[in-house]
C-alpha cells in the first residue's frame, strides 16, 4: 500500500508545530499502524531526519501509552481498540491519513505526537484509591460481593487511562475517566466509606487541572 501521511510535528513543548506530509510506500496490509510508523521513522533516520516521536509501549492494547488522533478520531476508525491494535488493512491504497496528538489544555504536547498526561495521575492521586495500608487485612472472602456488582465494578475498572475520552470529547472533559474510577469503587463494599469524598476530590481536581465540562 502507498499512503500519504499528514503528521503534526512539533519540536518541543514551547515551539510552534505544523503539519508535515510524508509518503510511505509498499506497506503491508498486515502490519499494524505503529509498525507503519516504525517504517516511516526508519526511513527518516536513514535520511538523517528526526523521526516522529510518539508514545507506545505494550503494543497489545492494554498499557494505554499509544495515543494518536487519526483522521478525526482517537485511535483511528476501528471500535474499542487502541492505535497499536489498528491494522493497515483497515485503510485503502492511496489513502491520506491525518495524524494529530491528543488536544486538551491539561495534555500539553511535549514533542510531535507525545502529550503529557500526568494530569491523569494527579486525578488518581487526589483520591482515586481506597485508603488501606499494606497488611493486617481480613480474609479476602470475609465480605461476599454480589457477582453482578463485581462485574459492573470490573467494567469500570477496565479503563486503560489512555486519554482517548478527553481527546474525543468536544469539551475536552475528563468526566469519563473520573467516573470509571469512582464507579469501580462505589460498587464494592471496600470502596463505600470514602465514596463521597472520592467523588468530590477527583472532580475538584479535574476542574483545577482545566479539563472541560
Amino acid at each position: 500500500m502507498d499512503l500519504t501521511l499528514k503528521i503534526w510535528r512539533q519540536k518541543n513543548a514551547t515551539s510552534k508545530g505544523k503539519f508535515v506530509t510524508y509518503k510511505v510506500n509498499g506497506i503491508s496490509p498486515n502490519s499494524s499502524f505503529l509498525e507503519m510508523m516504525d517504517i516511516l521513522n526508519e526511513s527518516l533516520v536513514v535520511k538523517g531526519e528526526d523521526p516522529v516521536a510518539f508514545d507506545h509501549d505494550c503494543r497489545e492494547g492494554i498499557c494505554g501509552a499509544c495515543s494518536m488522533y487519526i483522521n478525526g478520531r482517537p485511535h483511528g476508525p476501528d471500535k474499542a481498540i487502541t492505535t497499536c491494535q489498528l491494522h493497515m488493512r483497515r485503510f485503502k491504497d492511496g489513502d491520506t491519513i491525518v495524524i494529530e496528538p491528543w488536544r486538551a489544555r491539561p495534555f500539553p504536547v511535549l514533542k510531535d505526537l507525545i502529550v503529557d498526561r500526568t494530569a491523569f495521575d494527579k486525578i488518581i492521586q487526589a483520591g482515586g484509591y481506597i485508603s488501606v495500608n499494606t497488611g493486617g487485612i481480613p480474609d479476602a472472602n470475609a465480605i461476599p460481593i454480589p457477582r453482578a456488582n463485581a462485574e459492573l465494578s470490573m467494567d469500570a475498572a477496565a479503563c486503560i487511562g489512555c486519554g482517548a475520552c478527553v481527546a474525543a470529547c468536544k469539551n475536552a472533559s475528563a468526566m469519563l475517566f473520573v467516573s470509571a474510577k469512582v464507579s469501580q469503587f462505589e460498587r464494592l463494599p471496600e470502596g463505600k466509606p470514602e465514596a463521597a469524598e472520592r467523588g468530590q476530590a477527583t472532580v475538584a481536581e479535574i476542574d483545577r487541572l482545566g479539563f472541560g465540562n
Binding site: 481506597i130 488501606v132 497488611g135 487485612i137 463485581a150 462485574e151 465494578s153 464494592l188 471496600e190
Partner: peptide, 12 residues
C-alpha cells in the same frame, strides 16, 4: 486479601 481491600474486582 490485600488486593481485595484495595478494590481489585476479582471474578466472583
Amino acid at each position: 486479601d490485600q488486593c481485595v481491600a484495595q478494590g481489585v474486582p476479582f471474578a466472583r
